[in-house]
Amino acid sequence: MFGLNLDACIIDVPEKYYSVQDYEKGVARWCPGCGDHSVLSAVKRLCKEEQLIPEKTVFVSGIGCSSRFPHYMNTYGFHGLHGRAFPVASGVKFRRPDLNVFVVTGDGDCCSIGAGHWIHAIRYNINLTVLLFDNQIYGMTKKQTSPTSPMGTISNTHPEGSVLPPINPLQTTLGVSNVSFVAQTADWVPSHLYSTIKKAYEHQGFSFVKILMRCPKFMPDIAKEKVSDKDMVRLLTHENGIPLGAEAKRFTHIVEHDPSNMDHARELAASPEISYLGLFYQNKDALRYDLYGAHNINYTPEQKITAINQAMERYVI
């Protein structure tokens, strides 16, 4: 009609607009004041802002307080085994590039029992958004020393204080070949938290976000110190980094850092006392294993049978 080709002028209008409530499921049962609540809010906001289709979104976790996260999202979820979120999430994404896959893990889950998988997941650089909830203590099993607990932490396994220096997850991640995205944020700076998770989601590759978390139940002093001491927590800024919001005013120290500068990133990460919030490192060109994984999906049955028959020729006598 009127010379119009109707097929050509269909505008891609989303069928449904998702509100924050559409991503909600149940009432989170973390302790009052726990940092996990803030991350849940930030993630729901991200889902809404990005209009992630709930059925195309999967949250994979391990075991621990943080790993309860998928139960509170109205998406697909996989609350699996302690330390094993990375292999599962990698398997989910490998042949399903259409799915948005998030990994929610804790300091025990990622840096202790799952440390082997963590190293290799960084190297695989599969397009996953990884949120490490680092509260420096085992919460679910009631206050045992975590690999990120500061030396001297009094816990049920070290009543006289822990005896080893902690592992530094930022340094570790920055030390692995093919690393592509490393950032740090904190649960008590909601706008920075949101912007960091958003940047991580937008990154095509394994985006690792370490989130400083408060555990008011088992680590009350450390949490208070970090929140109040203006010298201990500093912001990173750069045009390619995490955009700074109104909260920047609360920080005394704002440090310029180019996220393509690996050496400087490692220097900042190594700081024993000071926690920098922002994007430490990003390399958009790192090789992605999931692109290899998805290179031959959707072969037809005919193609498959032809290939198998060809291979079988060699065995015919």
Partner: peptide
């Protein structure tokens, strides 16, 4: 050539974890 892949995982646990993830998906 038949539309699949062999994934050599970092260890035996990851090998089955990856398989479970793929099956779940």
């Amino acid at each position: 050539k038949a539309g699949g892949l062999v994934h050599q995982a970092e260890d035996e646990i990851a090998a089955i974890g990856f398989a479970v993830g793929s099956s779940y998906a």
